[in-house]
Each structure stands twice: as structure tokens, then as C-alpha cells.
Design a protein around this nucleic acid. Structure first.
Length: 293
DNA sequence: AAAGCGTGGAA
DNA sequence: TTTCCAAGCTT
């Protein structure tokens, strides 16, 4: 017996009209295309992903096509989506799919989890959205919706995979079809209405039963995740600047040429070393370049 | 298990 | 301007 069947029903009814026509939700989208979308959407907003996804799927419509390309091209096509390790992992995942799964994206959770760059969210998202499997799918939007509507907290607090999955599982409606819809609908509600900053409770389909609202929308004072480190002057910033150079140059870039991106030599060296360690850059006799094999 | 990892949008 | 945060994952 679902804990709150009417909550899921109300959210699903709302979703029927409110769902954005995101391209990866089209009926004819392949599991590979769904997998690509989930990689790109990790910590990256929908609006920035859409054009990159369209181009990616057109260029590499199958895992085999992706695996046949050099990783350097994957990193270039990733462009400025951020966290370029994801491009590398996606390429490696495509290679693994070709080698171990006959070129077809696997449908089993364990097989998906074994792919590089695929964690608890992405594996369940692909299983549920591409294959229709009945798994709880929990992303940051869903966590926020549950925190507010069910737990009465304005903020979800630090994530805990086991706890978050159990909470969503308890909310899934009994019929498989409704459970499938609810996974997407809860995410959509969190992404478009029950937002982190300024939730639009006036148009929320469950405002009348939201535990947080009923409690007067109290300020959250519980534990929070650690703040992101300052970006300006960080290794992440320098890595990003180096990657921009490597993507633009279709030839090795010397250490001297890289010096233009950052004046602090020690910090620059550390950034380049970490990129090499990640496999995002390789060092040859003439300098640094994107990985070609 | 806490920290590191890009880039950009929005308040 | 600063700050938060965005369909997370890896080590």
C-alpha cells in the first residue's frame, strides 16, 4: 500500500499538462540517447544541454558510433558543458557497451551501474525512462519535493542514496504505469515549480497538502552540504582554461603556450598534471593535447 | 566520507 | 556584486 497515493496522483495529473517537451522525452528516442542526456544533465541545466544533446545524437547515434570516434572528439563536442570528465566517461561507457553488451545499452541496473560515470541516479533514470523499469529515481529536484511535501522541510539537506531511494520508493504508486510517470513528474515539479530559490506554490498541484506549506514554510535550519569552494582562482578554473586551449588547438600545445592562461606557474602545472591524471590531456614531445586513443 | 570536479543562469 | 545552485559521480 503506497504511503500517499493521492500525492503521486495529483502530481501525475499536473504533469500530463505541464510536462515540458524535452527532446529526450520523445517517443522514438533510443536508450543510448537517453543515456547521453543523463550524462549531460549531471549538474548541468536543461537549457544548456539541449543543443549539445541534439548535435551529439546526430553525430553519434549509437554507442558503436561513439566508440569508433577518438576520445578527443568527444571532449571537443562536449564543448563548454562543464565537468569534461563526463565526456571521457561517456566515451568509455560507449566502448564498454560495445565490448560487453553487443552495442546495446544494458537494461539491468547492475550492468548500468558498472558503466563509467553512471551512478545511482543515472542508472535508475536510464532503467526507468529508457526501459520502463520500476525503480525509484531520485535527483536533486525529487529530493527537494519530498523534503517539502512529505517531510515539511524547506531544504532537502545532504543527500543519502539509501534513504532518498527508500523515501521515493514509498511514494511510488502501485500501478507500474503510474510509478513510471511519477518518477518523471516529481522531477519536473521540482525543476519548474518547487524550485530551490522561489517556489511557485500558487501553481503547485499539491500546495494544499504540502507539509512544508502547512507548517508555514519554516526556514530550514538542519544540516546542509558543504559549500562549493570559491571558483575564482581555483584549480577548477585553471583546468577549464587549459581545456579550452586544448579543445581549440588541433595540435599539441607547448607548456610555454599554456602559460598564457594562468600566470601562477605552480598552479598551472598542478592543473595540467591533474588533467593528465584524469586522462583529459596527454603529454607528448611537443606538448599537451586531447587524448587520441 | 568529504572533497574535488566546469560553466553559466538567476536572484 | 556575491551567492546559490544546477536531471551527480568518483576517489
Amino acid at each position: 500500500m503506497p504511503a500517499a497515493p493521492d500525492l503521486a496522483e495529483a502530481v501525475n495529473d499536473w504533469f500530463a499538462d505541464a510536462a515540458r517537451p524535452l527532446p529526450w522525452r520523445a517517443a522514438d528516442v533510443s536508450p543510448w540517447a537517453v543515456l547521453v542526456s543523463e550524462f549531460m544533465l549531471q549538474q548541468t541545466q536543461v537549457a544548456r544541454v539541449i543543443p549539445r544533446w541534439e548535435a551529439w545524437i546526430e553525430r553519434w547515434p549509437t554507442p558503436a558510433a561513439m566508440a569508433a570516434a577518438p576520445p578527443s572528439e568527444a571532449v571537443r563536442a562536449w564543448d563548454r558543458l562543464g565537468y569534461p570528465r563526463r565526456a571521457l566517461w561517456l566515451h568509455r561507457a560507449a566502448t564498454a557497451i560495445v565490448e560487453h553488451h553487443g552495442g546495446e545499452v544494458p537494461r539491468e541496473l547492475d550492468d548500468l551501474l558498472a558503466l563509467p560515470g553512471v551512478g545511482p541516479y543515472t542508472a535508475r533514470a536510464v532503467a526507468a525512462f529508457a526501459f520502463g523499469a520500476r525503480h525509484p529515481v531520485v535527483d536533486t529536484n525529487t529530493r527537494r519535493v519530498i523534503a517539502r511535501a512529505v517531510l515539511g522541510q524547506g531544504h532537502p539537506g545532504p543527500p543519502s542514496t539509501a534513504r532518498d531511494l527508500a523515501a521515493m520508493d514509498a511514494l511510488l504508486p502501485e500501478p507500474d504505469a503510474a510509478a513510471r510517470v511519477f518518477n518523471a513528474a516529481a522531477m519536473e515539479l521540482g525543476a519548474t515549480v518547487c524550485t530551490a530559490r522561489a517556489p511557485q506554490c500558487d501553481v503547485c498541484p499539491i500546495a494544499d497538502r504540502c507539509a512544508w506549506r502547512l507548517a508555514g514554510s519554516p526556514e530550514y535550519d538542519g544540516p546542509r552540504s558543504a559549500k562549493q569552494a570559491r571558483f575564482e582562482g581555483s584549480d577548477r578554473q585553471v583546468r577549464g582554461l587549459v581545456m579550452r586551449e586544448l579543445r581549440a588547438a588541433h595540435r599539441p600545445v607547448s607548456r610555454a603556450e599554456l602559460a598564457v592562461v594562468w600566470t601562477d606557474a605552480a598552479k598551472l602545472d598542478r592543473a595540467v598534471e591533474s588533467l593528465v591524471a584524469d586522462g583529459l590531456a596527454v603529454q607528448g614531445p611537443e606538448g599537451f593535447a586531447l587524448p587520441d586513443a
